[in-house]
Design a protein around this nucleic acid. Structure first.
Lengths: 124, 124
DNA sequence: CGTTCACTTGAATAACTGTTCAAGTATCTA
DNA sequence: TAGATACTTGAACAGTTATTCAAGTGAACG
């Protein structure tokens, strides 16, 4: 039976590659930075939110419009817009009864587009 | 009590913004494309996988090295490497007993970096 | 061969997440 | 003020997912 390797325990392999691992460890960004980065991508990692982001890049829209466009309930859209807003990916402005949403900055589209480039290359 | 709006039903707001919504709908990418894009970002949306990606951008490493670096079990790392491999983000080569992993292409780093730019601007 | 090492895999579990439903708030209009 | 519209919110539910555990490969080596 294979020897069980505890998380903190080093296997022979680690010892062999000690130099490399130590160098990588030193360069490693803060735990929090990588966590935040994962949180950001997590927000992009839902097709409803991806569709909303795509739509808002095309035009500023109200909740009702988005719901109709994506064939979903206002409630579902509203919940997702809240997630997007907390991640500072979208912003909103109220005009009477209607709340208009739009992308927070041009930069959001760049992340989106980088992803698109990857999946288009993948299918080659 | 508020009138319940069914997904397929249009509210007054939709009618008002009919032009905009229709234009956006016409431009909309294929359902599948946006789904695939969400799936890609979903893979980036986990801090363990983000750490692995970051590490592999620094150096080619074996499962054991990554496990030691991130203070996790080989099994957990192996499971995540499988996800990354299926998404075509990493590749592997065997050298005797040891399996080395590395990033699939330089492009993966670009998605990663775009995300980093966003979170560094967020904290301003 | 049998053992060891490096890694993989499947099942189980706990934690998380997206949508729905019902009820709420905010704004406008008659 | 009363009702309608646009949207938000909290709880509940179902589906997903990351890690652990135990058992399994495949390669090297005596």
């Amino acid at each position: 039976m294979a020897r069980k390797i505890q998380p903190t325990e080093r296997c022979d392999c680690d010892v062999i590659h000690e130099e490399t691992v130590n160098q990588v460890r030193e360069k490693m960004p803060q735990e929090e930075t990588l966590y935040d980065l994962a949180e950001l991508f997590k927000v992009f990692g839902d097709s409803t939110r991806i569709k909303i982001i795509w739509a808002l890049d095309e035009a500023e829209m109200c909740v009702c419009d988005i719901a109709f466009l994506l064939n979903m309930t206002q409630s579902a859209i509203s919940h997702q817009l809240r997630v997007l807003k907390q991640a500072e990916l979208v912003k909103s402005r109220r005009e009477g009864k209607i709340v208009f949403y739009s992308l927070e900055d041009e930069h959001v589209k760049q992340i989106f587009d980088q992803g698109l480039i990857h999946i288009s290359e993948e299918s080659k």
